[in-house]
Each structure stands twice: as structure tokens, then as C-alpha cells.
């Protein structure tokens, strides 16, 4: 990976990965929130590299590389909620085996905690949180199926 800086050309020490996942086009500033989803202790022993505010054709973006682990469908859904333009590249033997843009799910269960402390899902009842996902031109907001409270700006803070 290279970056132009005045007349010099610096090589950044982010090497290509042999096997793993590259999450590209993460909304600038959201990489650390994406790490909360994929970087939980024990999920991978490989190296993770994070680029924040990297230049892109549309301004700035964040990028994450994870060595030795392919992310799963549930992580995919969670990432879509906070970085709706992200692309997920699965790397096998140094080659891109698949490349997909995240799909914003229509409905999520047990992924996000309702922000309403008085919601029935935040009690000792045997139910999971459920949200209907609204996507207006990639502006994502969630509506709780039980109490109808809306979460829009702090989704990452409420991921389970």
C-alpha cells in the first residue's frame, strides 16, 4: 500500500495478507467501531491492521485487514449497520477469493440493545431484542419491534 506525500513516496508497512479479510471503504472514523465487532478477544490470533482516514476517490475512508480469519455472516450484518458502504474482501492465498459490498439487513435479532431502559427487551423476560432496519439512501436507523424507540446515531455503542 502506498501513499503520496509531496515529492516523496512512502511505503506503509501494511503488507498483503495471505489468508484473511480486508474490509475496505469503511465510513471514515468508524474503523474502531468495526473493530469492536470483529476484534473481540479470542476470535483471531492473527495480525489486524487498521488505517484511519486513508485517502479514497470519495474523500476519506477507513480500512481494516485481518490475517488468518474470514468474517462471518452475523459480523457482516453488524458492520453494515455502522459502515453501510463497506466492502468485504475475502483473501485466500494472496488472491481476492470474493468481494462483496455489505448488505443492510431488513431485520436484526439479538444484535443491538434497545436504548430505551423501559423496553421489555431490557428486563428479565426470555426474549431477544428485535429491530426493523430502515435505510433511507444509506442513512440507517433502527426501530425497536417492541417499544418502537428509534436508534440512529449511536448504533455502535449499543451492539451486543
Amino acid at each position: 500500500m502506498t501513499i503520496e506525500n509531496s515529492n516523496e513516496k512512502h511505503e506503509i508497512r501494511v503488507q498483503p495478507i495471505e489468508n484473511g479479510t480486508v474490509i475496505d471503504h469503511i465510513t471514515a472514523g468508524q474503523a474502531l467501531n468495526v473493530l469492536k465487532i470483529i476484534g473481540k478477544p479470542g476470535t483471531s490470533e492473527g495480525i489486524m491492521s487498521v488505517l484511519i482516514n486513508a485517502p479514497s476517490s470519495h474523500g476519506k475512508k477507513d480500512v481494516i485487514k485481518i490475517e488468518g480469519r474470514e468474517i462471518n455472516a452475523q459480523e457482516f450484518d453488524k458492520i453494515a449497520l455502522i459502515a453501510p458502504n463497506a466492502t468485504i474482501n475475502i483473501i485466500r492465498n494472496f488472491k481476492v477469493a470474493s468481494k462483496k459490498q455489505v448488505q443492510i439487513p431488513e431485520h436484526i435479532e439479538g444484535v443491538v440493545k434497545c436504548v430505551n431502559p423501559n423496553c421489555i427487551t431490557n428486563s428479565n423476560e426470555p426474549i431477544k431484542s428485535n429491530f426493523t432496519v430502515n435505510n433511507e439512501n444509506r442513512y440507517v436507523f433502527l426501530r425497536c419491534d417492541y417499544c418502537e424507540r428509534i436508534i440512529s446515531e449511536n448504533i455502535a455503542d449499543n451492539l451486543l
Binding site: 423501559n118 421489555i120 427487551t121 426474549i127 425497536c144 418502537e148
Partner: peptide
């Protein structure tokens, strides 16, 4: 009647 929002929906389920 219950103090928690969404309680009736859960009860119906």
C-alpha cells in the same frame, strides 16, 4: 396493563 413498553406484544407472542 404493564409498565414496560412492548410488554403486550411480548405477551401476545
Amino acid at each position: 396493563r404493564h409498565p414496560k413498553e412492548g410488554s403486550a406484544k411480548m405477551a401476545a407472542e
